[in-house]
C-alpha cells in the first residue's frame, strides 16, 4: 500500500508545471524515504531530478518500494481538477497498474477521485558523479527567470561567465548583443533577495536558452535558485521546495566542435 497526502494541491500542481514541458512521462520511485523521479528529456540534453522527502508530506505510507510510470500530460489533466486548497492524496496498491488521486475540499463536502493508468517505462537511470563545482551562484529565482526570458530574444544560447566579482549572462545574435551583469550583494534585508557567489575558479559556459527557460517553470516553487558550474560539465539548476525537497535540472553545456 502506498499513500501520500499533501494538505494543499498547489505544491503538486507547481511541481508538475515545473517538469511537464521537459518530460512527457516519468517514473515516480516511491520508498519509505519519499518519492524520487529522475528522467532525461527526449534529446538527452537535460535531466530532471525530483526529490520529495516522506517527512514533508502530511501523511506518508509506503509499505513496499513502488515504481509508478506516469504520463505527465494525463497527470496534469487530473491535477487541473483539484482546487489549490484541496487536500490531495496519491494512493496505489502494491503491484497495481493504476494510481488514484483523491481531492478533498477544505470543508470536506466535496471528495473526488481520479484513477489513472500506470505505464511501464523503460527508463535509464544515470549515475551523477559527486562534483565540487568551481562556481555556485545563489540568486532570486524571479531574477534568473527574467534574465533567461530576456536573453532568449537575442540568441539560442546564453553564455554564463562567473567570477568573484559577479556573474554575467550574455547573448548575441542578428539583432545585436545583450549582457546582464549581477554583482554579489552585501547587507540585503531579505535573504531571498541576496545574490551570493562561491567561487573556486572562474568559469565560462554556454547553454541553450530553450532549456534554461524550461527550468524556470519551477520559479513558483522557490524564492531562490542555485546554479552550480564547472568547466566542461553539466550545469545544475536547483530549486528547493520548502520543507519537502528539491528539484534539480542538469543541462549539458555546448561544446566547441
Amino acid at each position: 500500500m502506498f499513500e501520500a497526502r499533501l494538505n494543499n494541491a498547489t505544491t503538486l500542481k507547481k511541481i508538475l508545471d515545473a517538469i511537464k514541458d521537459l518530460l512527457n512521462e516519468g517514473t515516480f520511485d516511491c520508498s519509505d524515504s519519499g518519492i524520487q523521479l529522475q528522467a532525461m528529456d527526449n534529446s538527452h540534453v537535460s535531466l530532471v531530478s525530483l526529490t520529495l522527502r516522506s517527512d514533508g508530506f502530511d501523511k506518508f505510507r509506503c509499505d513496499r518500494n513502488l515504481s509508478m510510470g506516469m504520463n505527465l500530460g494525463s497527470m496534469a489533466k487530473i491535477l487541473k481538477c483539484a482546487n489549490n486548497d484541496d487536500t490531495v492524496t496519491i494512493k496505489a496498491q502494491d503491484n497495481a497498474d493504476t494510481v488514484t488521486f483523491m481531492f478533498e475540499s477544505q470543508n470536506q463536502e466535496k471528495v473526488s477521485d481520479y484513477e489513472m493508468k500506470l505505464m511501464n517505462l523503460d527508463q535509464e537511470h544515470l549515475g551523477i558523479p559527486e562534483t565540487d563545482y568551481s562556481c555556485v551562484v545563489r540568486m532570486p529565482a524571479m531574477e534568473f527567470a527574467r534574465i533567461c526570458r530576456d536573453l532568449a530574444q537575442f540568441s539560442e544560447s546564453v553564455v554564463i561567465c562567473c567570477t568573484k566579482e559577479g556573474v554575467k549572462f550574455s547573448a548575441s545574435g542578428d539583432v545585436g548583443s545583450a549582457n546582464v551583469k549581477l554583482a554579489q550583494t552585501f547587507n540585503v534585508d531579505k535573504e531571498e533577495e541576496a545574490i551570493v557567489i562561491e567561487m573556486q575558479e572562474p568559469v565560462v559556459l554556454t547553454f541553450a536558452c530553450r532549456y534554461l527557460n524550461a527550468f524556470t517553470k519551477a520559479t513558483p516553487l522557490s524564492n531562490q535558485v542555485q546554479l552550480s558550474m564547472s568547466a566542461d560539465v553539466p550545469l545544475v539548476v536547483e530549486y528547493r521546495i520548502a520543507e519537502l525537497g528539491h528539484i534539480r535540472y542538469y543541462l549539458a553545456p555546448k561544446i566547441e566542435d
Binding site: 532525461m40 534529446s43 538527452h44 540534453v45 537535460s46 535531466l47 535509464e124 537511470h125 544515470l126 549515475g127 551523477i128 558523479p129 544560447s157 554556454t206 541553450a208 560539465v233 553539466p234 542538469y250 549539458a252 553545456p253 555546448k254 561544446i255 566547441e256 566542435d257
Partner: peptide, 14 residues
C-alpha cells in the same frame, strides 16, 4: 562553432 553536448557523455548509465 559549438554543438550541444549530451548528458550521456557526462553521466554513466546505471
Amino acid at each position: 562553432t559549438q554543438t550541444q553536448g549530451r548528458l550521456d557523455n557526462f553521466f554513466k548509465v546505471l
